[in-house]
């Protein structure tokens, strides 16, 4: 599959939005892959975190949307503390999540969570999860 890269994709509103919300410069990433190498959740991800930031650099919003990566991220910040270039990838992930969440799209359907689960889980898990995964 060929992708289209142009001035429009590189400097698109999407790229600007990601950079504004995350307060990160995407192009600082030089694709060493250390974030992916240390990501605790990437065994469950379609695309590696380093691939997500590469797609974001190129402005390929749809490819990011198709991947589950940003919703599997547990915001543990391991990527950010180890990034040699000081890119706070956890914040980039959050920005990408928010771009979807702010369209009122939820990743967790709260009414569908079984009562036993709610009884079992500590508040910190539920509030944390809802904040990261719902609008």
């Amino acid at each position: 599959m060929r992708i289209e890269i142009s001035t429009e994709t590189l400097y698109s509103d999407f790229v600007k939005k990601v950079e504004a919300i995350s307060e990160q410069t995407l192009i600082s990433c030089y694709q060493c892959g250390k974030c992916s190498a240390g990501c605790p959740m990437c065994f469950a991800m379609d695309l590696l975190p380093s691939q997500i930031i590469r797609l974001a650099q190129l402005g390929l919003e749809d490819d990011i949307a198709k991947a589950n990566t940003i919703w599997i991220c547990a915001s543990c910040i391991t990527c950010s503390v180890r990034c040699p270039k000081g890119v706070d990838l956890a914040r980039v992930m959050e920005a990408l999540r928010l771009i979807t969440s702010r369209k009122n799209i939820d990743q967790v359907q709260i009414p569908e969570i079984p009562k036993e689960t709610i009884a079992q889980l500590p508040q910190v898990a539920m509030v944390g999860g809802f904040r990261k995964l719902t609008a």
């Binding site: 892959g33 250390k34 992916s36 190498a37 240390g38 065994f43 590696l48 380093s50």
Partner: peptide, 25 residues
């Protein structure tokens, strides 16, 4: 891929890396 973590695991040394060319950890 740049290695993220290295530690002993019994008789072996574990290396956590990535192959960014295949997109696999």
């Amino acid at each position: 891929g740049k290695v993220s973590k290295i530690f002993r695991d019994g008789d072996k040394i574990k290396v956590w890396g990535a192959d960014t060319l295949t997109g696999k950890r």
